[in-house]
Structures are given as C-alpha cells and as structure tokens.
C-alpha cells in the first residue's frame, strides 16, 4: 500500500527536476545566444589586420567603429618576430563595401574620458573594398591628455603675464603706487587748505593769497601726478585687454573640450580650469579695485577708421 504512494512521489520529484533542468538549460542557451549575438558570432565577418609599433591602448574585444557605428571588434593582438604588434580585427560583412583598401585604422578616445576605440577612417570607395586578411594602415589619434597639456602650456604664459601685471600695479616704488601716494598727499593738503580758508574767511586778503599760492602748487603737483598715471595706465590697460582676450579664447576651447566629455573631468582639465579661474579672478579683482575701477576706460564699441583713398590701377 505504501510503495505505490512512495513511487508516485518519486515520479513527481523526477518530473519537477526534469522541468527545472530544462528551464536552466533553456536559460543557459538563451544567455549563450545573447553572448553570441553580442560578440557577433552569428554575423558573417571578415578579418583584417593592422600593424603597430606598440600595443599600448589596444585590447582584445575593443570596439571597431566606422562613422560612429560599431562595425566590428579587435579579435587578437600578437607580437611578431620583428617585435611589431599585429592586430586582427573582424569587420561585419554588412559594412565591408564601404571600407576601401586605402582606409586607415586609428586608435582614438571617444570622449575626453570615454573608452578607446579603433576608428576606421574611410578610404576612397573607388578603390577595391577590403577583403579577408587585408592590411590597413594604422595611426594613433591625439591623446586627450596631450591636448590638455598643450592647453595648459598655452595658459601658463598668459597667467604669468597677469601675475606680472598685478605685481606692476602693486609695486610700492612703481609709477601707479607712487602717483597714488602723491595724490593722497595732495588731497590731504587741499583739505587742510580748505579748512584754513574757512577759518581765515574774514581775516584779510593777504593771508588768503598765501594759502591760494599753496593751493595752486598742490594742484600743480596733482596735475603732474595725474600725467604720470595717465602714461602708466594705458600700457597696463593694453596688456590687460590682450591677456583677457587670450584667456577668453583658451577658456572657450576648454569649454568645448569639456562639453564633449560625457563623464567626470580628469585631473588635467580640472587643473586647467583652476588655472583659468585663478587668472580670471586675478583680473577681475584688479579691474574692480580702487582706483583702477575709475581709471580703466569704459569699454565702448569703436569704429574702424575710414581710409579716403582708392588706388588707381596705374598711378
């Protein structure tokens, strides 16, 4: 009586196990299918090669792109007997007709912090398309780090200019500081004389004449000081203008580069941005500080001069 019940239970377990195993197998096949599809095992592909002096930046499985579309992947990287590196790339046959024998492979970074890919630079479509075992020319695109280093090196002299400019203004024995000191003295002297004038208001013209003589001298002094400042300021202003224009230009380039990078900003960009910010802050504070905020000319739109001469063909 008990045996048939036991056998029935055993049968049920067996069936369940079978179902579970089949499910697991199906799942495994599905996963394998997906991996295969991802790895292009089911699409027909053609292998081509390129050679490079070193394998830096290249890795197996790396995507190969053509006009922004993935058209294949790096299959194999091996060293040749002559110490060159041979890279085998499989290209999807679907796109093969677009890639000429004179196409080039270039190692690039998709964005500033993106992953490296091998980009196929299309050759002439007039030339025969690549075939199995064709060899492409290889080149390395400019590394983002190198670009940023070049930007940073361009910025450095500009910032040095600005530091020099600020130092010139702050130099205690420089024209600007000296003139400001003189002006302060003159202001104090004038204030003192105005006080004396008020006190002497009714005590006779003789004393007043003496005071006015002093006032005249003080004003002369002020005029000469302003003259010196007038000579010193335009040079500084010209330098600031040129420097500001340069900084803005480089900032624009950096902004453009930064926008292209989707992810975080690498250390170099960060450094360059800090440099730019530092520079702009220095300039801003110089421009806002008294008395330069009053002395720097207001930027106005200007007209190019007209030249009233037209050259005859044969003078």
């Amino acid at each position: 009586m008990k045996l048939p019940i036991y056998s029935q239970k055993l049968l049920n377990i067996e069936k369940r196990t079978q179902r579970f195993m089949l499910g697991a197998l199906g799942l495994m096949l599905l996963v394998l299918l997906m991996i295969g599809m991802k790895q292009d095992y089911f699409s027909r592909s053609t292998s081509v090669y390129f050679f490079t002096s070193n394998a830096q930046g290249l890795s197996k499985g790396m995507a190969v792109k053509f006009v922004g579309f993935k058209v294949g992947s790096v299959q194999e990287i091996s060293m040749e007997p002559n110490a060159t590196v041979r890279v085998r790339v499989s290209l999807n046959d679907e796109y093969l007709h677009l890639i000429g024998q004179d196409a080039k492979a270039r190692l690039i970074k998709e964005a500033l912090v993106g992953e490296s890919v091998v980009e196929i630079i299309p050759g002439s479509t007039q030339v025969h398309q690549v075939t199995q075992d064709s060899v492409l020319e290889f080149e390395r695109g400019q590394d983002a780090g190198a670009v940023m280093e070049s930007l940073a090196s361009q910025l450095q002299p500009i910032l040095n200019d600005m530091r020099q400019f600020t130092a010139t203004i702050n130099k205690p024995d420089g024209d600007v500081q000296q003139t400001l000191k003189n002006l302060n003295q003159v202001t104090a002297a004038t204030r003192e004389m105005v006080d004396q004038l008020t006190r002497l208001g009714v005590s006779g013209n003789q004393k007043l004449d003496g005071v006015y003589l002093k006032l005249d001298q003080a004003l002369d002094h002020a005029n000469s000081s302003l003259g010196t400042l007038g000579k010193a300021i335009p040079q500084l202003v010209e330098k600031t203008d040129a420097t500001l224009a340069n900084v803005q230009e480089v900032t624009n380039i950096i902004k453009q580069v930064s926008q292209n990078s989707a992810g975080g900003i690498p250390l170099l960009v960060d450094n360059v941005n800090t440099l730019v910010q530092e520079g702009q802050e220095t300039l801003d504070s110089v421009q806002k500080s008294w008395p330069l905020n009053r002395m720097l000319p207001k930027i106005e739109e200007q007209m190019l001069p007209v030249d009233g001469y037209v050259a005859p063909e044969k003078p």
Binding site: D241, A242, A245, I299, E300, E301, Q302, L304
Partner: peptide, 17 residues
C-alpha cells in the same frame, strides 16, 4: 551698463584687435 552691452563692446574690441 547691461551685461549684453558690455559683451558686445568686448566682441567689438576683440574684433578691432
């Protein structure tokens, strides 16, 4: 002065340069 006016003047000056 308005920011845009100053910006226009800056473009003008850079163009002169």
């Amino acid at each position: 002065r308005s920011v845009r006016l100053v910006q226009a003047a800056e473009f003008n000056q850079r163009a002169q340069h």
